[in-house]
């Protein structure tokens, strides 16, 4: 009998593998990516712990005093130290509304990207794997939608939803509807990326091998091809979070998104815009600044990821 070969081969844990990866190496060297991630994580944490850390609850009418309306931030004259960033026209603490608003914006952003990822991966895999007529139909739809620009599609779908539901009902399910609208409007971006990678993967030997072994199409697509297309999906999904947040803000600004009683960053900017002529610039520009910082750090992270993973993305 051969002696049992007890090689002391250390299996690296996931964490160790991650630390040795190129991704982590380049992250350690890229100051912009580090700062962006730091700000992003801080914003996400602050937004999702809003009920714990916000000084007041903007949804609670009992805590609002109309006499406190339009107070400026603390560094200006005539401010109240209780309201760090000032108050809006209804007397709500701006810091609290921004925290709650950022939570809504992020929720819609993540939700919409998950939905469009789901649709995009499914349709992209089908189009790339089966080709032929399925491919032609799906990609034609994607082309048409993209030629209309995602924002236009979102506005039109939003308008239809708004007209169907009416204001009151729309307000109740606004978060879900916005996720649906933005998800529907932007799935082609991901579908096209997935399709391009699937086309490249499909002709490789491991796909032939799994087909010879008698695996079903679904298994080959989801268990074998999909994991190899993940890095471009990851990159584009990051950028899409920024796009989704901007789309949501645009829709809310047009009055097709979140109602003012349950504001997102976009509807905060919209409600503040009415008071900009009276000199109360902070009601609209402070939430605006938060929105820009949020979108900017996500875009910078997306740029960094694209440089590291270097997938062949569509231009423009």
């Amino acid at each position: 009998m051969t002696p049992s070969t007890t090689t002391t081969q250390v299996v690296p844990t996931r964490w160790q593998r991650f630390r040795a990866s190129y991704l982590f190496y380049s992250f350690k060297r890229d100051r912009v990516a580090q700062i962006s991630l730091l700000i992003f994580v801080a914003l996400v944490l602050a937004a999702f712990s809003a009920p714990l850390i916000a000084p007041t609850d903007p949804y609670d009418l009992a805590q609002i005093d109309i006499l406190n309306s339009e107070l400026p931030p603390v560094w200006m004259e005539g401010s109240d130290p209780a309201f760090l960033l000032g108050t809006d026209a209804q007397g709500r603490d701006l810091l609290s509304t921004i925290l709650y608003g950022a939570r809504v914006s992020l929720l819609i952003g993540f939700g919409a990207v998950m939905l469009q990822g789901l649709l995009g991966i499914l349709f992209g895999l089908l189009a790339g794997y089966y080709g032929g007529r399925i491919d032609a139909v799906l990609m034609r739809i994607a082309d048409i939608q993209l030629s209309f620009s995602t924002l236009m599609v979102a506005i039109v779908v939003g308008a239809i939803f708004k007209a169907t539901f009416g204001n009151l009902m729309f307000g109740e399910v606004a978060v879900l509807i916005l996720i649906l609208i933005i998800g529907i409007a932007e799935w082609p971006q991901i579908a096209r990326t997935v399709r391009a990678s699937v086309l490249a993967e499909k002709s490789k030997e491991y796909v032939d091998a799994s087909r010879v072994m008698g695996f079903g199409s679904a298994r080959i697509m989801f268990r074998h091809i999909l994991p190899n297309t993940l890095s471009p999906i990851f990159v584009i999904a990051t950028v899409q979070i920024a796009n989704a947040i901007i789309s949501e803000a645009a829709l809310s600004f047009l009055g097709l998104g979140m109602p003012e009683t349950q504001p997102s960053l976009g509807s905060l900017i919209k409600s503040g815009f009415d008071y900009i002529q009276s000199g109360s610039w902070w009601i609209t520009l402070v939430p605006g600044l938060v929105l820009v910082v949020l979108v900017l750090v996500v875009n910078l992270l997306g740029d960094w990821l694209r440089d590291v993973m270097n997938p062949r993305l569509y231009k423009g």
Binding site: I246, I276, L285, V292, V295
Partner: peptide, 22 residues
């Protein structure tokens, strides 16, 4: 330009109004 991409168009408009109109 990367900052510019991250600023929604309505916000640019509001900032312009604040700076050059008000």
């Amino acid at each position: 330009s990367i900052v510019g991409i991250s600023i929604p168009v309505f916000l640019t408009a509001i900032v312009l109004i604040q700076l050059f109109s008000i």
